[in-house]
Amino acid sequence: MDKTPGKPRDKATKPSRDDRLKAALKANMARRKGQAQARRDADRVADKGQEEE
Score class of each variant (00 low, 15 high):
M1I: 02
M1P: 07
D2W: 02
D2G: 04
K3V: 02
T4Y: 11
P5V: 06
K7C: 00
P8E: 06
P8K: 12
R9W: 15
R9P: 02
R9E: 11
A12S: 11
T13R: 10
K14I: 13
K14L: 03
K14C: 07
P15Q: 02
P15R: 05
S16K: 00
S16D: 01
R17M: 03
R17W: 14
D19G: 03
D19M: 05
D19R: 09
R20S: 10
L21K: 13
K22L: 12
K22A: 14
A23V: 07
A23C: 10
A24C: 02
A24D: 10
A24S: 08
K26D: 09
K26G: 04
A27Q: 07
A27D: 11
N28K: 12
M29V: 10
M29G: 08
A30D: 15
R31Q: 11
R32T: 08
G34D: 04
G34F: 04
A36S: 09
Q37T: 11
A38N: 09
R39P: 02
R39N: 13
D41E: 13
D41A: 12
A42M: 08
D43W: 15
R44D: 10
R44S: 05
V45K: 11
V45S: 08
A46C: 01
D47P: 03
D47S: 05
K48R: 07
K48Q: 09
G49Y: 00
G49I: 04
G49H: 03
G49C: 04
Q50A: 07
Q50V: 08
Q50K: 01
Q50G: 04
E51M: 03
E51Q: 04
E52H: 05
E52C: 01
E53I: 13
